[in-house]
Computed example of a mutant assay.
Amino acid sequence: MGALAAAAPVAPGHAQTKGGAPPKVPAATDSYRGQSFPRQRTPIEALPLNGQAEILRLETLLDQAYGALTASPTAAVFPPILAEAVAQAAEQAAAVEPTWNQDAYRREAALYAAEEARRHPPRPKR
């Protein structure tokens, strides 16, 4: 997982290297089982320098869940280890870049959690 946290270089002349604000990137909308949900994936050049690695990690983890969601109608989508990794990545991103709007990520993660619960409901305790 260390490679996921590596920061990518910013191109010379990019707005961030000049101190300008990164462009706003709207979340794309996807749907699953008739339910719409956002999928925000930010081009590297639009990421803030602070938090770039953390936001990339968060988006990469959400991509893993999306891949599982679309690969099979019965496979695990958001097992506890992935859900915890997403929560930690979101916390880390918020810690280093508190102004980065994570609403789309939260809604996407909520869909994966709900689908995981639908596919694999908790077993009753005996």
Rank of each mutant, 00 (worst) to 15 (best):
L49E: 07
V86T: 06
R107T: 13
L61F: 07
R33K: 15
A28C: 03
Q40V: 09
P80H: 06
P22Q: 13
A21K: 02
Q88H: 09
E45Y: 12
G34C: 08
P98R: 15
E45S: 14
A114V: 02
L69A: 09
P48I: 11
I44Y: 05
K18C: 11
V77N: 00
P124Y: 10
L61W: 11
L111H: 02
A85T: 08
Q64I: 15
R123Y: 04
V25H: 00
E59A: 03
K18N: 09
K24G: 01
A5Q: 04
A110G: 08
A71R: 12
A68W: 01
A5N: 11
A83W: 04
V96D: 12
L69T: 14
P73V: 03
T42K: 09
F37E: 03
A6H: 06
A76N: 06
A15G: 01
L82A: 07
A110V: 03
D103G: 07
T17F: 08
A71D: 07
E59S: 05
A76P: 00
E45R: 10
A15T: 09
Q102I: 10
Q40R: 15
Q102R: 14
E115D: 08
E84R: 15
A85I: 01
R118G: 00
A89M: 10
A85Y: 07
A113Q: 11
E108M: 14
K24M: 06
P79W: 04
T70H: 06
R41A: 04
Y112D: 01
V96Q: 09
E108F: 06
Q92C: 00
